[in-house]
Amino acid sequence: MARQGTIVFFDLETTGLGTTSCHIVQLGASCKNTIFNRYILPGIPIGDKATKVNGLTVSYGQLFLHGEPVSTEPLYHSLKSFIHYLGRFPGPVLLAAHNAWRFDQIVLMRVLWKFFLFEQFQQVVSGFVDTLPLSKKLNPQLDCFKQPCLGRYFLGGKYNAHNAVQKAKQLEELFCNRWNPDNYDIEEFTDWI
């Protein structure tokens, strides 16, 4: 990965699918067995559909995962910690997510701007790789490109499809151990910032 330095795989769990209004409830990332995981108490209710998918609920100011309380950190501190985590890798860093351009990148950038953290973020991150269109180019024989389908096809195993850390780890394994795209493919599906 000559030009970009390091690729870090990340994922978000949110209160819903509205990119302009959802709140982040989990921010997870993986790079070479170095994990980042933060749960965030949202400022708005978690939608019923989101709860069915990710198992996260809020009751009396506490976040629960499948009925068990989880420790949370304010979003601002989670973002600062994430920037610090990313800064530990040889840079500049590329962030990779499945469907990044239509969801994860948009939501993450919105909250970075909201908390005036974009400039700090930009010092360590050079862009976003969207592995959804990349997977379509590399595997045109497939008919399903959702991450769970790709995981079953290439890895054969089941994983927690709605846990940000598990999704980031699985995406890293798909990318690095199964697809192994070259720099030209990576650049084609990178949105530079």
Rank of each mutant, 00 (worst) to 15 (best):
39 Y>A: 01
146 K>M: 05
103 F>N: 10
96 A>Q: 01
82 F>Y: 14
168 A>S: 14
47 G>I: 03
13 E>N: 05
102 R>W: 02
191 D>E: 11
30 S>Q: 11
72 T>Y: 07
90 P>F: 06
174 L>S: 03
45 P>Q: 06
97 A>W: 02
78 S>D: 01
187 E>F: 00
75 L>M: 12
70 V>K: 07
168 A>G: 10
184 Y>D: 12
120 Q>Y: 07
118 F>H: 13
178 R>T: 09
93 V>K: 02
9 F>T: 15
23 H>V: 01
65 L>H: 14
129 V>A: 03
82 F>H: 06
124 V>L: 10
172 E>M: 05
17 L>W: 06
43 G>I: 03
58 V>R: 03
67 G>L: 04
53 V>N: 05
89 F>G: 09
141 Q>I: 01
111 V>A: 01
86 L>V: 05
143 D>S: 14
32 K>M: 01
53 V>W: 02
96 A>K: 01
150 L>Y: 08
184 Y>V: 13
79 L>Q: 02
1 M>P: 13
66 H>N: 15
140 P>T: 10
55 G>S: 01
157 G>W: 01
60 Y>S: 14
111 V>W: 12
162 H>M: 05
115 F>E: 08
45 P>A: 08
6 T>L: 03
94 L>E: 07
147 Q>A: 04
187 E>T: 00
118 F>R: 10
20 T>P: 00
34 T>H: 13
136 K>F: 00
139 N>F: 04
135 S>T: 04
48 D>G: 06
33 N>C: 10
98 H>V: 06
191 D>R: 10
183 N>V: 15
145 F>Q: 01
53 V>M: 09
84 H>L: 06
42 P>F: 12
23 H>C: 06
167 K>P: 00
48 D>K: 13
109 M>E: 14
167 K>E: 08
129 V>D: 00
181 P>N: 06
110 R>I: 10
19 T>Y: 03
154 F>C: 05
40 I>K: 09
167 K>Y: 00
170 Q>H: 05
91 G>M: 06
164 A>G: 08
144 C>A: 12
155 L>R: 14
98 H>E: 03
55 G>D: 05
108 L>I: 10
19 T>R: 12
91 G>R: 15
84 H>T: 13
69 P>R: 08
40 I>W: 11
51 T>S: 14
41 L>R: 09
170 Q>I: 14
15 T>M: 05
47 G>T: 14
141 Q>E: 11
156 G>V: 03
13 E>K: 04
141 Q>G: 11
118 F>P: 00
72 T>I: 03
50 A>R: 04
56 L>G: 13
